[in-house]
Design a protein around this nucleic acid. Structure first.
Lengths: 150, 150
DNA sequence: GGGAACTAGTACGATGATCGAACCAGGTTA
DNA sequence: TAACCTGGTTCGATCATCGTACTAGTTCCC
């Protein structure tokens, strides 16, 4: 670590990525809290965000969020207790269970989606359509060599 | 939260930013560990990374890393105990103290810088010079509206 | 088929990270 | 100088995270 940023525009790319990442996360989290969904933590939200429409296995959630299975399990436990998600059996594998959004989770979803759209619109307006497209494209491309999950 | 990624290329930008951010962080952390700097945690590294060449105030570190002053203080305590940083008085304000890299910290610095350079080179090779430049430029621009610190 | 090896998930216990509240000392302002 | 603000610390509680160990179901291969 320690790349003490000689000039403002020469921040290492890690920091450069971190800044908008946290900004997005904070915006979503704050908006959900304002809408009454204030009974979960940021770590729990990070799990929930990764649940697919047809449910997602715990192991996949853990891998995607880069935490251990135990941590993921712990967070899902809490989300289950507060009614955001539920575990259902995986028909294709009796060992596995699919984590799905429950009532409270599906209620929160459109709120989150709206904020994502809002923030993305702001950023797009700031950058302009062309540069916005380039940013998305570059990040999507980077995924190929940086995403251990995919 | 919960934007259950309909198609791979339509991940919300938060996730798209998270993936390479964590990839970079993990690479640096792993390389430092291999080089013998294995006696600090990721959270401590996140602090250290933000220390400027002339020292940085605790409050600034906390704000930049988006943790509370208490957390930052706690992490700096540990880094001080293991010889990575030290606190020196701030000549311009007797209340404040500047957190600076100590011997072990300055020893780790070139290792970290080398990995950052290596990873950036890989990414640049993958994207091509032009797209790489666009990515950096777009992220730097985004900072203007997403960086509460700056 | 049947055992070996592997995978999904859970349980337990320890440590780390993080926060809120309260506080102190040095600065700033009127 | 009194009131207020700001940088930092201390204390205690809670949350997040991991390593180790375990159970149950699956896959592989002779």
């Amino acid at each position: 670590m320690a790349d003490p940023a000689p000039k403002p525009d020469e921040l290492n790319l890690g920091l450069l990525l971190f800044i908008p990442y946290r900004a997005m996360e904070n915006r979503i989290f704050a908006a959900l809290a304002r809408a009454g969904f204030d009974d979960f933590t940021l770590a729990q939200a990070r799990m929930m965000q990764r649940i697919g429409p047809d449910g997602t296995r715990l192991t996949d959630l853990a891998e995607s969020a880069q935490v251990t299975k135990q941590t993921a399990s712990h967070l899902v436990d809490q989300l289950e207790r507060t009614g955001y998600v539920r575990r259902t059996p995986d028909p294709t594998d009796a060992r596995a269970r699919l984590v799905r959004l429950a009532d409270r989770g599906t209620a929160a979803q459109p709120v989150a989606a709206a904020v994502v759209a809002e923030v993305e619109a702001e950023w797009r307006a700031h950058l302009g359509d062309r540069r916005w497209g380039q940013l998305r494209a570059a990040l999507t491309d980077l995924r190929e060599i940086t995403d251990p999950y995919r």
